[in-house]
Each structure stands twice: as structure tokens, then as C-alpha cells.
Nucleic acid binder design. Structure first.
Lengths: 226, 226
DNA sequence: AGTTTAAGTTACTCATGGGTAACAATATAG
DNA sequence: CTATATTGTTACCCATGAGTAACTTAAACT
């Protein structure tokens, strides 16, 4: 029940009530504080859940597990989240914002296509350290609800499409060789997403060396042309 | 119970019994037939299960589903398989044989490292069309039983290691440029395994073009060096 | 032919875990 | 200081699905 109340609605309701009385700061401030607190708790839950999903897998992680990680009981989760699948959806929302943000940043520059692609790869390898992003990558498209599944696939296709655009741009400005941009974009994503399954920032493998090797492969391939 | 009887034991038992009486063909033949039939049925079950796992996911596929696909009831499966997880294990056994077989074939040639790598890529893209292989790729390492999980990871590391050896050989014979063979092997696998999640032989995308693009990426990269 | 073994069935048990109802405590507004 | 929304709890329900026991049918060996 509680989880059906949309945040936006809640705010506007408060706003209406207050508008006719007084628009003092304490009211607004505490209102925001509450929202902030709620948002922070939701974030923490998503983070805990994502970490658990990555470690044990979605189906092997119970809501009780997640609740325990957050030091609450299971029903409390339902105050922040519609159901188990909604956790995946909310993680994906976060991931979408971050990845598209990266793409915004990368495509905003005046650099040529190849350089933009290089920037994207760098940024993406940084990003996939985050459990929420990794959770999205691992579970994207995996939704019982049909509408949710389609939304997830569409969102990922959107991202893939933007990378393809970068590649096409590179082919037009001559910085990227002639290739099938669709396939190359997918292959690149497959490789990068694969990384997210095993790479940990704390590990022995140097972050920079990883990026170097990905760029080596993408830039020149491994064949020796002496 | 019945599933605990190892195939080899069964055969040797029959053999002993017969050795002292008569080694007529009909007996051996029918014995083989039985084993053959059993093996064929097991194969069919694995194939059905793998297809279902790929379509709906391991946890969303019940043993009843798999049984139905094979036109038997659930308990019958237990005659061929120890438990649900055992299906994954048996799929992995099949996959291991095929992939290592490919590697045997590839490394047996006198070609240089790069050509061997190329051959492997070609062969692997062929192989990952098979549902059982795809099932292995998607579910490798995902085992509730610890021993089984370790075995799965070990087997995959073994394969990865052999590819790394090819790369190292290529670096030694000068056909592959200097690189971190471990990372490159993993990246290559990530890309190839990623393919297995979306590529269908029946689809519009030409098999040869896919291979071409993978080889383009691995061979020369996408940067235009004009 | 008659006995044994393989192969399959029906009808259960039972743990797990998602989701809910009803109640309790805590914070915030007026 | 009281009323109300927010946040959380305990104690359930109930569907699902893995695995088993006991029984039946079909095939195969002697």
C-alpha cells in the first residue's frame, strides 16, 4: 500500500496544503529532509541489494537477506520498493542515468569519433566498478513482467545505439576504419560488460593496465604487422 | 538410486557375467543398444533443458517444464539425472569436450599463434550456436554445491589458459604483438561469450559477417591509420 | 515362460520465500 | 500537546517447485 504512493504526488499534496497558509522555510526544509532521508535509504537498499545479487545471484538472494543487510525486516522494504523485481528496475534507472550521463559528456566534446570512443571506454570501465551498474548489466532484460522487460531492453538498445552513433561519426570523420558499426558496438559492449563480471577495483590487476589492454585491442588489434 | 549406477560399472558387470558363458553378439549388441538408448535420451533431456534454461533462465525453469518438453514426468528425469544442478554439470561436461576438442584441433596445426587464434575464433563462433554450449557459458560457475562450483571454474580457467598459451606462442613466433596475454584472452572470451547470448544462426545476421567483424577487431582494431 | 531390471507413473512431503494484514513506535505539523 | 502521517514490526498466508516413496508397465535375459 504505502509503496503505491508516488513521491511526486506526496510533495504536491504537501505543497497545496501549505501554499494557502505559509511558505516558511522550516516546513519546506523538513519536507526536503524527509525526502532526502527517504532517498538516501532507498539508495542504501539498492546498493545492498545489488551487492547481494552480484554475490549470490538474484534468485538465491531473498528479500530477508537484503532486509538484514540493511538492518530492517522484510516488510519495511516494501515501503521503499514495490516488489523484488522493482529493485532491479530501480537499479537500472540509476544505471541509465549514469551511463547516459557519461555518453552526454563524451559526445559533447568536439573530438573525433575515435577519441570519443576512447573516452567512452575509459569512463565505462570506471563506472562498472559500481555494484548497481554491475547489477544492471548482469540482470538487464531479465524481468518477469513483460512491460518491464521491454523497457529494460529498450533502454539498453538506446545506449548501444548511442555508441553506434559514435562509431558512425568516427567512420565519417575518418578516425575509425570502415566496419559494421552495429556488430562492433555490440562486441565492444560484450567485452566491457564481461569485465564487470570479474573485475574488482581492489584486486591486484591495475585499473590503468586493464584500460590500456582494452584500448590496445580496440585500437590496433593484436596482430603484429612488422 | 538408479542414477547412482555409473555407466562403466554397468557394462563391466554385464561383461563379467557373460565372459564365462558365451560372448555372443546379440547379448553385447542389445546391451549396447540399451546404453545407446539411454545416452540418446540423456542427450535429448540435456538439449531440452539447455534450451529452456536459455529461454526462461535456470530458476524460472522447473523440472516439470523440462520433463514436459521431453514428454515424461518429473520423477523420470531423476532416472537420468541426479538433481537439477546435475543438468548444468552434464551440460558443462559436453561443452568441455567440444571446446577442448576444438582447441586440440587448433593447436595441433603447425601454424603460427595468430593463425591458430583465428582458427579458434572461427570454430568457437560456430560452436556457440549450440544450446548446450550456450547453457554452459551462461551458467558456468553458478553452482550451489561448492565442489561443483570449483570444478566448473577450474574447467573454464583451463580453457582460458589454453587460449592464453596460443597468444603467448603468437608473441614468441612474432605473429602477435606484445600484450598482456591474460587480459587479452579474457577480453576475447568476454566478447565471444557475449555473442552466445544474442546470436542465432537463423537470424538475419550473416554468420560469416559476424566472424569477419570479430576478426577485424582482433586483427587490426578499429582505428583508422591513414 | 517366467523372473529380473529398466523406465515411467501417481501421489505425496516439505522447505523456501514472496507478499500481506494488522499492529507498534516514532517523527512532524499545527 | 495532541493528531496524523511516516516508518517499522510481528505473525501470518500461500504458491511454487525440488525431491521422494510406492506402485505399474515394458523390455530383456536365461
Amino acid at each position: 500500500m504505502g509503496n503505491n504512493i508516488v513521491v511526486g504526488y506526496e510533495i504536491s499534496k504537501i505543497g497545496k496544503k501549505i501554499k494557502k497558509v505559509k511558505l516558511t522555510k522550516p516546513v519546506l526544509k523538513s519536507g526536503l529532509k524527509r525526502e532526502e532521508k527517504r532517498q538516501l535509504k532507498l539508495d542504501a537498499i539498492l546498493r545492498h541489494a545489488a551487492a547481494a545479487f552480484m554475490e549470490k545471484g538474484y534468485y538465491k538472494t531473498s528479500l530477508d537477506d537484503i532486509a538484514q543487510l540493511h538492518n530492517v525486516t522484510k516488510p519495511t522494504l516494501y515501503y521503499y520498493v514495490k516488489n523484488k523485481e522493482d529493485i532491479l528496475i530501480k537499479c537500472e534507472d540509476v544505471a541509465s542515468v549514469r551511463i547516459n550521463g557519461l555518453l552526454d559528456q563524451v559526445t559533447a566534446s568536439a573530438e573525433n569519433g575515435f577519441i570519443q570512443l576512447e573516452h567512452f571506454i575509459r569512463g565505462y570501465v570506471d563506472i562498472i566498478t559500481d555494484d548497481i551498474i554491475r547489477c544492471h548489466i548482469r540482470h538487464r532484460g531479465q524481468r518477469e513482467d513483460k512491460a518491464a522487460r521491454n523497457a529494460s531492453l529498450k533502454m539498453h538498445r538506446g545506449i548501444e545505439h548511442r555508441v553506434r552513433e559514435i562509431i558512425i561519426k568516427g567512420m565519417e570523420d575518418g578516425s575509425i576504419r570502415d566496419c559494421n558499426s552495429t556488430i562492433i558496438a555490440i562486441l565492444l559492449f560484450d567485452a566491457l560488460n564481461g569485465i564487470s563480471a570479474w573485475y574488482r577495483d581492489e584486486g591486484e590487476l591495475n585499473h590503468e593496465e586493464l584500460v590500456q589492454q582494452v584500448l590496445l585491442l580496440v585500437t590496433e588489434g593484436v596482430k603484429n604487422k612488422v
